[in-house]
């Protein structure tokens, strides 16, 4: 592997032929796999769990990295199920699959859920288990944007032999306007070509570059879907990540009160939920 390249391999829900595993085994890699898929158990694996319903039945091995993909409403109504996972894992990423349909009425519920999750995380920290979760603890550790950076730092090679900005652009076959949203950026034969690559860069995202919700994934696929531009997040995206940011701020203060962790870390108070409201007027 050259140029500090790392490879993440998304495994299918079925077992791969041995020759595939042999090739994969020859390089350093991380496996991303569905939690129900029979596969190689590895501390470097990332287990993706769909939905919350069968979460309590899942046998979490200690110190796993787990991803839960679920709908926004599941998070609001199933906060206790998510909370039950924290004691068992090293890291839990929660990915909302329907952020674009959120409306204003759900936002208080989301705030309440984050506060409940904060209670559980605080207990874990007090007992010395420093569990991480993207929604609440990542922001503590960050002093600058820590986005997905698809197109800039990562690229996806799909089963069709073509490159995509990220897996979502490969899997997505929807037409949200402005033409096909499933577009590739090169292939194995001709190499990688990303037109307007600068638009994936933070400096070319007018809202994101003034934002301090550093934990935001700044999902370029979702941006494309909701605003037509990969560099522009939707209002809902911004509000959700700012509710998380502010919940992180509250949790940080409680952790500082109860432990000696992060004594100098400060997340400042802000009075907006969407950086659009504070964008410069030139």
């Amino acid at each position: 592997m050259k140029q500090n390249l790392s490879v993440q391999i998304v495994f299918p829900s079925y077992e791969l032929p041995k020759e595939y595993l042999t090739v994969i085994g020859q390089i350093d890699h991380t496996i991303i796999t569905e939690s129900t898929t029979p596969t190689l158990s590895s501390k470097n694996s990332i287990y993706v769990h769909s939905g919350l319903t069968n979460l309590p039945q899942f046998d979490f091995l200690k110190d796993l990295n787990v991803v839960i993909r679920c709908k926004f409403s599941e998070i609001i109504h199933g906060g206790h199920l998510i909370a039950s996972v924290f004691p068992f894992v090293r890291r839990l990423n929660i990915v909302m699959t329907d952020i674009e349909v959120i409306n204003g009425e759900d936002l208080d519920g989301y705030n309440n859920t984050l506060n409940s999750l904060s209670d559980v995380i605080l207990k874990e920290y007090v007992r010395g288990h420093f569990v991480q979760t993207n929604l609440l603890t990542d922001r503590f550790m960050l002093d600058e944007m820590n986005n997905c950076n698809a197109g800039i730092e990562t690229i996806t090679l799909a089963p069709d032999g073509k490159f995509y900005i990220c897996p979502a652009f490969y899997f997505d076959s929807g037409d949200y306007g402005l033409g096909d949203s499933c577009f590739n950026v090169g292939d194995l034969e001709n190499g990688l070509h990303i037109p307007n690559i600068r638009l994936y860069d933070l400096e070319h995202a007018p809202l994101c570059r003034i934002c301090d919700a550093y934990q935001c994934k700044r999902c370029v696929w979702l941006n494309r879907k909701t605003t037509y531009e990969v560099n522009t997040p939707s209002h809902e995206q911004c509000v959700i990540t700012h509710i998380e940011r502010n919940a992180s701020r509250s949790l940080l203060k409680r952790i500082q009160e109860k432990t000696t962790l992060l004594p100098n870390k400060v997340i400042k108070e802000i009075n907006y939920l969407d950086p659009f409201d504070i964008k410069p007027n030139y």
């Binding site: 560099n231 209002h235 659009f276």
Partner: peptide, 15 residues
């Protein structure tokens, strides 16, 4: 759909 207008309303010369 205000989201579809956001790119226009945040657009600046340098970007």
């Amino acid at each position: 759909d205000q989201n579809k207008l956001r790119p226009f309303l945040t657009l600046d010369r340098l970007t």
